[in-house]
């Protein structure tokens, strides 16, 4: 990993203190047991219930379009800038391009993030680009590039989904031609339980394989989809972990349903944006 030497990176081998606290405290397995017994999640939600969303466009005045989204504690700000000519390209391309940058703020996670993009952030940028490319009418922007920047200010799980949903709103505000409204949802899977819109603790819980004898089900993992609402097309799909076909299919259904729940929220935000535009 290349390190930026012009910034203060902290001591070379520093470790967040929570690591030592967690070893004696709540493990993922115990947390899951509590959650399973209660039949509810720690914040009182049902398993397949999304957190409350706050979505607002026009968060950054300098940008052509921008949006701010809050899902529980997760806070993401997305800005879209004017289309510009694709830099460093000699040939003319008939289709436009998107450039996505997904970044966790240094203070957004339990562990401090560096200023430079690490592999996870690069991967998330790729997934975000993939999702938005199918939603934007790229043929209307020949030889142009649209820059989209997502900054996570607080990561409490499902940050990528939040960023994609917000990016859709920001693109509309920027006046970029699009096919459809885009929404994205994450679901965590552990022992056949599907946790829609997991927070960071639940995300961690879904990434590990439980060792104790009573958990025979091997399924665990995360699923993220982005959906174009009117056409019912999945423009992006990502899964990791270890999941069987049946669980994957049922997870897909849950995700599709939850996407539909978010659509009215996005629509409301867009209508507000337009009515405000007419009034002023």
């Amino acid at each position: 990993m290349p390190v930026d030497h012009k910034r203060i990176n902290g001591p070379e081998e520093s470790v967040p203190y929570e690591l030592f606290a967690r070893l004696s405290g709540l493990t993922s397995e115990k947390a899951f047991e509590q959650l399973y017994k209660a039949g509810k999640r720690s914040d009182g939600r049902e398993f397949e219930e999304h957190r409350k969303i706050f979505l607002k466009n026009g968060a950054v005045s300098q940008a052509k379009g921008s949006a701010y989204i809050e899902m529980g504690q997760t806070k993401v700000i997305v800005s879209v800038f004017d289309p510009r000519e694709i830099p460093n390209r000699s040939d003319y391309s008939l289709k436009g391009e998107l450039y996505c940058e997904f970044k966790f703020a240094p203070f957004s996670c339990a562990k401090r993030r560096l200023h430079q993009q690490d592999n996870e952030e690069k991967q998330y940028s790729c997934i975000m680009k993939k999702a938005l490319e199918s939603a934007v009418c790229l043929h209307e922007l020949p030889n142009f590039q649209v820059d989209i920047y997502a900054l996570v200010m607080h990561n409490d799980g499902s940050a990528l989904s939040a960023a994609i949903t917000a990016a859709g709103v920001a693109l509309v505000e920027a006046g970029v031609p699009m096919y459809d409204i885009i929404t994205s949802v994450t679901v965590g899977i552990q022992q056949g339980v599907k946790l829609v819109d997991p927070d960071s603790l639940e995300e961690q819980m879904c990434q590990v394989q439980f060792l104790s004898e009573k958990y025979q089900d091997n399924n665990h993992g995360l699923l993220i989809i982005s959906k174009l609402h009117t056409q019912e097309q999945l423009c992006q799909f990502y899964q990791n972990g270890y999941v069987s076909l049946e669980v994957l299919k049922s997870g897909l259904e849950v995700l599709s349903k939850t996407c539909e729940v978010i659509v009215p929220l996005v629509q409301k935000c867009l209508i507000k944006h337009i009515t405000n535009g007419i009034k002023s």
Partner: peptide
């Protein structure tokens, strides 16, 4: 027979 990663 399990899926460890799926991506579009």
């Amino acid at each position: 027979e399990y899926f460890s990663t799926v991506t579009s």
